[in-house]
Write a protein that binds this DNA or RNA. Structure first.
Lengths: 152, 152
DNA sequence: TATAAATTGTTGCACACGCAACTATCCCGC
DNA sequence: GCGGGATAGTTGCGTGTGCAACAATTTATA
């Protein structure tokens, strides 16, 4: 034992840190987005993911994976956003089981309103987390993952 | 612009990665723990947190923070676990508003049964995530946060 | 000491989620 | 071409969650 058990414990510790930071950010962002745009975090995630595919479509299943949501939850999530006119369903011709979703102008508009709120809440939550000793290392490590090629 | 906007985008990217990995691990672990011990991830988190304080108590509010749950959700979570006999409420004398929670023997027992399941699900989910290019860097960075002092 | 303000935990209510069962469509072997 | 299996998405149902309002206790202020 010893070495092997250490690996297990290190993983568990890392997972606790990850979960704690995630919870902190998500609950903070949830409130901000709700106040500013009547959007939940997952709803924002969907709109953002769609916009990021600029002009292109996404299938329900892709949305499900992008949000870690079950198929049924994905259906209802898309229902909500469609009812609000933020996206549209498009049955695709080549596979008639599949359903594409696409952002509407109203969706894009709301997204441009919500993005700054999202970004500020994120910055704020990270700053707060950096003060907690058990979260600080992860906060520092996070931006280094996708190391910015110094974009001069 | 440029530099400032880059920082925002890097943070957002890091957050997306964090959220994606979190979702992957949590949904995988949820199923494993549910099958093996009829425990949800939050329920496991509570038991684990209590055990980690070995023999000591935790207040409702602490549990709420440890799980990123609202007060009402915390109340009901403790209710569920208490009804199953896994923990007990203890009114503390010095502050009669406060309520301590403590693990019962049955709680400890279930926890020792659930921990290996938890650890294996975690290892498995991390291995799977390491195969995805956008998650791999975070998976690698995670265990380095709490750098193991080589415990010979 | 008395009274207001703040803190801790609990309930009513509406809502989002996962699971299981279902329908519709595609794909493969014959 | 045709039937069996796999895949995509949708609904019924039970349950966990957050918000707002509340009761109980402590702390601050006059």
């Amino acid at each position: 034992m010893g070495i092997k058990d250490d690996a297990v414990e290190v993983r568990a510790q890392g997972w606790r840190t990850l979960a704690a930071l995630h919870g902190l950010i998500e609950s903070s962002m949830e409130k901000s987005l709700q106040n500013a745009a009547q959007l939940s975090v997952v709803e924002f995630t969907v709109l953002d993911a769609l916009a990021r595919q600029d002009g292109w479509h996404m299938r329900m299943q892709q949305l499900g994976r992008a949000t870690a949501l079950s198929p049924s939850a994905t259906t209802r999530l898309v229902n909500r956003l469609e009812d609000r006119g933020l996206l549209t369903r498009i049955l695709c011709a080549d596979d008639r089981r599949g359903i594409y979703t696409e952002l509407t102008p109203a969706g894009s508009e709301l997204l441009t309103l919500a993005r700054p709120v999202h970004d500020e809440a994120l910055e704020c939550a990270l700053a707060e987390a950096a003060l907690l000793p058990e979260l600080a290392p992860l906060v520092t490590a996070l931006p280094q993952l996708h190391a910015a090629v110094p974009a001069v």
